[in-house]
Design a protein around this nucleic acid. Sequence first.
DNA 1: GAAATATGCAACCATTTAGTAGCATTTAGA
DNA 2: TCTAAATGCTACTAAATGGTTGCATATTTC
Lengths: 111, 111
Amino acid sequence: MEKPHNQHIDKIFKAIADPTRREIFHALVVASVALSITQISERYDISRQGVTKHIKTLQQAGLITINAHGRERYCLPSTKPLKLVKDWVNFYDKFWDDSLSRLGDHLDSQT
Amino acid sequence: MEKPHNQHIDKIFKAIADPTRREIFHALVVASVALSITQISERYDISRQGVTKHIKTLQQAGLITINAHGRERYCLPSTKPLKLVKDWVNFYDKFWDDSLSRLGDHLDSQT
DNA sequence: GAAATATGCAACCATTTAGTAGCATTTAGA
DNA sequence: TCTAAATGCTACTAAATGGTTGCATATTTC
């Protein structure tokens, strides 16, 4: 029913929906130094422009910030937006499967 | 790099990436009884077939199971797959933003 | 200053996606 | 039994997505 849904969380969920983006984000987090776009693209089979697009999506979700340094642009990850994902998931802790399956108890046949 | 990535978690992340699907899942979880596909579609502006597609995506992610009862098919949510999302998010607890921002400390200029 | 490097931007392409409508099938009910 | 309801299946469409290439621009470096 048309909840005025959160713009930001949509972008976060979208950003982490792609496995390549999750990989890039992961690589940035565990890296010991900031990585430039070229350095990131060297790690994957996709082109530099492909990486740039993913970076942009991650940036829009707030999952990375860009640190320009001369002609290079270093990507710094931010785990802060993941708090919203965590909150979203944690909401469902109250509903464990055993209780949910009782929702169908008034039905007799199953498939 | 070609990590042999987890098929299941990809489907889960994809399923929860869409705001409408998150709404449907949410509605199913908080509902006091199991809902049929028609009952679900009545709650949204999209068509029954549109809902059916979303249901299928959620089902493939393991986030709902179908409980057939006569000509009706009741949808039961399952929060179990969310454990994988939770684990994914929790991994990043070790990396708080304050520490991550130091990754760029060797750079002098910023934007 | 010239060449090489890092990047952005724009156009393009194939596939997927979210949504639709039409029709067939199964089940419930009068 | 005839009809209405719940659903599946099969196109179909428009838009988004993930990817590409080519070219322009800015910055280093020699």
